[in-house]
Design a protein around this nucleic acid. Structure first.
Lengths: 308, 308
DNA sequence: TGCCTGTTCTTTCTGCATTAAAAACAGATT
DNA sequence: AATCTGTTTTTAATGCAGAAAGAACAGGCA
């Protein structure tokens, strides 16, 4: 049966909203809440009914009011607020990229379903998405082949990424000075400087800043294929970033500095400077990733084979 | 239940193979057949059992022999040799791209399942694939949005395609003279000349030749993202080629000539010449496609709304 | 009239069951 | 020893059903 993730996430978000109200306050109308939480009125009604049930909300006639201020234990656990598919996607990527699963191994849907406690239907649908990432290959009427994050794979990704990002910078610098992107860029620059200023404390914030900068550049193209590709890249990097924790501080510092140069180049609107800085940064990033793959291959023993 | 498409396609391909043998001839072993038809021995055994049942194949002890030469009516209809998913994919693309379905309309899986006579499971899985094409957008817990082949969409595709193809030519010309790609290119060139020589009769062969040329170039990169993208492009073009039948002959002639120039440039290995010819050809192709979209928008009345 | 809540109907999500296909195993035959 | 066929065990493809979420309809009240 369908897991009521929308209900639970709505319930939690609704609680958070009520926490700001004083006890006794009138609740907003069902329509207002539905709009605010971006779920249907049907679901809001279910949430409100549950809140009444638990004595958090009371009603007089058609009007609802807050009975007591909700507390932390009133919330559902976060895991339950993800749909079966989304939850599996997260856990699966974590498992396959962080764990010891190696390129060339086969995955079977039935086993995964057992392991992750969901149905094969959900598994199949999600694995199909990863095909798109170039991570998995489907072999009809047979198991799935894990292609793995190999050096070759990273080269292919970066090859495309460089093309796309250079192309994106051209769209970016065509924006008029008044465009919101330039303001956003200034904010990103400040964020970078702030991290650099307290590097020892904050270097772990680098991935977010990185994602924000590259995303705004890619999005300037307005090209759905380029943006879609960046989403893939960002997802993969999110999960592979932690492969090599050594020098994380140093690597962040280098990348942040390269970013600042890159931002300067963008401001200058000089294509040559931009190309040079962008290429330089991407090459460093690519080399870093390849480096962690190799470290990983040498250190972690492949005691994988949980699944044949 | 699972439709036995593998069995039926194997059955047909097996028949075709037997048609070359004289009556009374010994059949190859199960293993050999399984390997040759690229299906499992289990399925081959089912096929052979069915052939015995129908008196096409007989057996003495463990040995099978051909009793009578199979004829056309012994085959299964082609439609049944496609898996539920593949069959739906084909019919759906045909329907949505050839029909009057317009950008911005909503699709719902339940209705499609009724219309195409398959289950919603299959529909969902396939629609997910088309997300990748940029054709559809999934809106969780709600219907699918058809983005359509708009002028904007075509511009985005060609923007990426130009980057990829220019990049691919660089890989291509790095191949040594002895590489099989150059031989294949020569064959493609001959094919082009042959079509041009009998243009009035053969211009309908152009799409195949076009696909073959561009594919060999893209594949030279060995980059899975580039090749995957070309697969998307090729599929879309396969279904949109027939939008504007006017001037099909003339358009093919232009493209074929541009291809020949492009091939010459590749042979010269001169990057500038290649870029110029490649760009020119892609711009023509893009303009042609945009032209047919506009024609289509003006002529075909949007009496679509089969689905709300 | 416009917004609210109550109700009903439709559609998606997701687990499960069933059958086709593959894979593994085992004895037989050359 | 290698290859063949017969048999059994697993796994993937796909339809279906039940519950959740969305959408539309309807009466009531400011």
């Amino acid at each position: 049966m369908k897991g009521n993730a929308v209900f639970k996430s709505g319930y939690n978000r609704c609680l958070r909203r009520l926490a700001h109200l004083p006890p006794g306050a009138r609740l907003p109308s069902e329509n207002e809440l539905a709009l605010a939480l971006d779920i249907s009125r049907t679901t809001i009604r279910a949430v409100l009914a549950a809140l009444e049930e638990r004595g958090i909300v009371g009603r007089a006639g058609g009007q609802r009011h807050l009975v007591r201020v909700p507390t932390e234990p009133d919330h559902f656990p976060d895991v339950q607020t993800l749909s079966a598919g989304a939850a599996f996607e997260r856990r699966f990527l974590e498992w396959i990229l962080q764990g010891d699963f190696r390129a060339g191994q086969l995955l079977n849907a039935a086993e995964l379903a057992r392991q992750f406690g969901t149905s094969t239907t959900t598994i199949r649908e999600c694995l199909a998405r990863f095909q798109h990432f170039g991570l998995l290959e489907r072999r009809p009427n047979s198991s799935w082949l894990f292609n793995g994050i190999t050096v070759e794979f990273v080269r292919e990704i970066y090859d495309v990424r460089e093309m796309f990002e250079l192309r994106a910078t051209r769209s970016f610098i065509e924006r008029p000075d008044t465009a919101p992107e330039w303001r956003e860029l200034a904010v990103i620059e400040q964020e970078h400087r702030a991290i650099l200023a307290h590097l020892d404390r904050d270097f772990a914030l680098f991935p977010q800043a990185d994602e924000r900068l590259h995303r705004i550049i890619h999005e300037a193209t307005g090209n759905r294929f380029i943006i879609d590709f960046y989403n893939v890249v960002a997802t993969l990097f999110h999960y592979t970033y932690r492969w090599n924790r050594e020098d994380a501080r140093q690597r962040s510092a280098t990348a942040l500095t390269e970013h600042l140069d890159y931002i300067d180049a963008l401001r200058s609107r000089d294509p040559r400077a931009i190309d040079a800085r962008c290429r330089k940064h991407l090459r460093t990033a690519c080399a870093t990733l390849i480096g962690s793959i190799e470290t990983r291959a040498n250190t972690a023993a492949p005691h994988a084979a949980i699944l044949t």
